[in-house]
C-alpha cells in the first residue's frame, strides 16, 4: 500500500511487488517448525492447554501463509477488508453457535 506512488510510473501494468527469496524461505521454516512444535506439544500433557496451544500455533501458521505466501501484506485495502471480513463472519458463525451450545449444560454435558 505504501508503494502506490511507484505504481503510477507503470500506469498500465500491475504493481509487481517481488518478495525477496529469504522471506519465502523464512516463512517456510517457520511453518515447518510450527508443525513440529504442534506435534511435540500434543505428546505432552498440558491439561486444559493442549487444545488452545494447537489452535494458537495453527492460527499463527495460517496468518504467515496469508500475509506472505498470499501477498496480503502488500495488497490493497479492499483486499485487506475482504480477508478480515471473511474471518469476522467465521467468528460470528462460531460465537453465535457456541453461545447456544455451551449454555445448554443441563441436557448435553455431563
Amino acid at each position: 500500500m505504501a508503494d502506490t506512488t511507484e505504481h503510477h510510473q507503470l500506469e498500465h501494468a500491475p504493481h509487481v511487488h517481488v518478495t525477496p527469496l529469504w522471506i519465502y524461505i523464512a516463512v517456510f521454516l517457520a511453518l515447518a517448525v510450527g508443525t513440529i512444535v504442534t506435534y511435540l506439544a500434543s505428546l505432552v500433557d498440558l491439561g486444559m492447554w493442549n487444545t488452545p496451544v494447537a489452535l494458537i500455533i495453527a492460527t499463527i501458521k495460517a496468518v504467515l501463509v496469508i500475509l506472505f505466501f498470499m501477498h496480503v501484506i502488500h495488497s490493497t485495502r479492499l483486499t485487506w477488508v475482504t480477508v478480515v471480513g471473511s474471518f469476522l463472519w467465521l467468528g460470528i458463525l462460531f460465537v453465535l453457535t457456541f453461545a447456544d451450545y455451551l449454555t445448554r449444560g443441563w441436557s448435553l454435558f455431563k
Partner: peptide, 14 residues
C-alpha cells in the same frame, strides 16, 4: 491453510 487446521484437529487430540 485448511490442512494446517485439519492436522491437529483430526490427528493430535490429547
Amino acid at each position: 491453510i485448511v490442512w494446517i487446521f485439519l492436522f491437529p484437529f483430526l490427528y493430535l487430540i490429547h
